[in-house]
Amino acid sequence: MIRMFDRSKRVRWLLVILIVASLAIVTIDYRSKGNGPFERIGHVALTILSPIQHGLVTIFRPVGNFFAGFTEVPSLRARVSTLQRQVAELRAGENTVAEIERENESLRKLLGIRDRYNLNTLAAQVIGVSPSNFERTVFIDRGSRAGVKKDMPVIAGDGLVGRVIRVGASTSEILLLIDRTSAVASRVVPSGETGLLEGDGSENTKLELFNPDAKLGVGDRVVTSGYDRGLYPPGIPIGTVVSAPPAQSNLSRVVTIQPYVDFSSLDYVLLIIGQTATSSPSPSGTVAP
């Protein structure tokens, strides 16, 4: 009986120690603002994890894609035609060819956008997705060894993906533009109105226009404006306006933007290293993605 009592006491002490340790870590991390010891430990852990991620993605991607399609009911309807085509291809025993074609198409789009905007880029494969329900990030198989640096813009064949927020030796983390903490200076085409595009954690983003009386409508395209201290090159396609309610106040107007990029099926991305001198697309962003 005494032994049981002692054991129960020890367990409580253990709990107290672990809670205090957790709170201490929270405090240290909060004060260091992302430059503390935990950041470096995280880099090492991520480097250890990346080969396993890579292997699992290769093995389980077909299963994961199937499961994602099965569970995502709202997007299921939109993908019916794609799935029907894939079923036909599977029936004909051409699933391997179909996968290669899809990758080929994805890579061709990447080359297309790179050439269209004369970008110096570095290609990378997406090897993981943040499992958090509150963060929207992905992991890629390129790190500092390949020349990746923090804040590098990232694009896919359809348009802007986000930017690099963490760089390990052989892997990096990309903050998607739909993350709540993402903000991109943007321009609406053809009106030329500018604003700040912010993610809200959902599949769409919000564009806060600087001019509340801006004239724009559903279907207008949104591109990067290039105002973020040169972070994003101007003219990179972002998405289209899907909802443009009138201004709620005299100060700003918020419209909803659907990104061109399907963040649930990112395979390959390009990291923008730089832009050649002749590159800048027209400020009106007349090139469609």
Binding site: L56, G64, S130, P131
Partner: peptide, 20 residues
């Protein structure tokens, strides 16, 4: 962690991910 970030990161349930 490997499964969470690779397989379950993509296989979402109405946009939500499991807490493996």
């Amino acid at each position: 962690l490997a499964f969470e970030t690779s397989v379950f990161g993509r296989a979402t349930l109405v946009g939500a991910k499991p807490e493996l």
